[in-house]
Amino acid sequence: MDESRRSFLKGIGVAAAAAGLGCTFPLLRALASSGTPAAGVQTRQLCMVIDIEKCLNEDLIKDCTEACRIEHNLPGGESDPERQIRWMWTQKFEHTFPDQAHSLTPKELRGEQVPVMCNHCTNPACVKVCPTKATWKRESDGVVMMDMHRCIGCRYCVVGCPYGARSFNWHEPRPHIKNIRPEYPTRMRGVVEKCTFCAERLREGREPACVEAANRITEGAMTFGELSDPNSKVSALLKTTRTISRQNALGTGPNVYYIV
């Protein structure tokens, strides 16, 4: 009797030890595979280089934003900037690069309107917070995509994005679109939208609408291309010119660069 109780207790001990070890295994595996991916791990990454000086041209900016507006059926006529739908817009130099402007930055430079858009970050904060994977980083080209079919309008991404690149549709957008271009869908009330580097044009091998419009006015105002290809135009530009990107300290790894 004693013997059997003894062996029974031993058996329980062994089983508990085995179960304990078993539990730690997935934990160990998770620990081994965790950690944020370092920049450059992405196999392909599209990026944009914007020449701030060449973009100091009202006509150019107007053409760019208008090309984007028409291309993607963006609604207009909203005066409240917090309710505007914008994929690409301009803002003052010191607001775009708060850590670059200082008290002695020339007045002219501070007032400069810099074109801004989604940075298609290497480490996008918006993607991390999206509960439905409606926004995700596309592995084939590094574009931070939006799937309007999946967006539930929770606006976590709007809060997560440190660049203000995302807009929420507070109203039904259709009544505010002048001429709807049937080739591209509109959005509906309750979804978030943003620049997708013109994914629909990339698919056809064309450059984004803003790049095309900008370069029509000033060649080289915006350069678009493959960051991971060392022979691409953007790679050459980034190697040979002084460029900055927005709020580097945040660790998002923005992929829109600016020539100052």
Partner: peptide, 27 residues
Amino acid sequence: WRNLVVREGERFYTSEAGEQYEMSLTK
């Protein structure tokens, strides 16, 4: 089609008959 276009960035669909079509509701 929707998943292939939006999520995978693909463009063409090959039918059973072997013909290629652009995966697009509108186009």
